[in-house]
Computed example of a mutant assay.
Amino acid sequence: MTNRRSFIKNTGLLALSLPLLKSNLLASSTQKKLPAIGIQLYMVKEDMAKDPAGTLAQLGKMGYTQIESYGGDKGIFWGMTNKEFSKLANDNGLTLISSHFAGNEEDFEKTAALAAEIGMKYLIYPWKGPQKDIDAFKRIAAEFNDYGAICQKNGIKFAYHPHDYPYKPVNGQLPIDVLLANTDKEFVDFQMDYYYTVTEGQDPETYIKKYRPRFRLCHLRDVLKERLPAGSEDESACDLGQGIINYPHLLSTALDNGMEYFFVEQSRFYHETPLQSARVNLDYLKNLKLV
Rank of each mutant, 00 (worst) to 15 (best):
K9C: 08
P204Q: 11
N246V: 02
Y261R: 00
Q242W: 09
I134G: 00
M43P: 10
Q131Y: 04
Y261P: 00
M259I: 04
G119V: 06
K286Q: 13
K153G: 07
G155P: 06
D203A: 05
I37S: 04
N281F: 08
L224E: 14
K74N: 15
A181W: 01
A115E: 02
E109R: 15
S98T: 09
G172A: 05
K209I: 06
S29C: 08
K209A: 00
L14P: 01
I76R: 00
K33M: 00
G243T: 10
N154D: 06
I124P: 02
K61V: 04
K33H: 14
L255F: 07
D47E: 14
F190G: 10
A89Y: 06
A254V: 05
K128P: 03
I118E: 11
K168R: 07
T183P: 11
L96I: 05
F77L: 01
L41A: 03
V223T: 09
A57Q: 10
G241L: 11
L26F: 12
K157E: 13
L96W: 02
A113Y: 02
A15R: 02
G79K: 10
S236L: 07
A27N: 13
E233Y: 13
Y147D: 02
L255P: 03
K168Y: 04
N104A: 06
A230Y: 12
Y270G: 10
I39S: 12
K32Q: 15
T11M: 13
F187E: 01
E226S: 14
G231Y: 07
H161V: 06
P248W: 11
N257P: 05
N246Q: 11
P126Q: 09
L21P: 03
Y70H: 12
E68T: 07
Q242G: 01
T30R: 15
R216D: 02
N24F: 14
T199S: 08
K121P: 01
F101L: 11
E84R: 04
A254C: 11
E272M: 02
Y270S: 14
K168C: 00
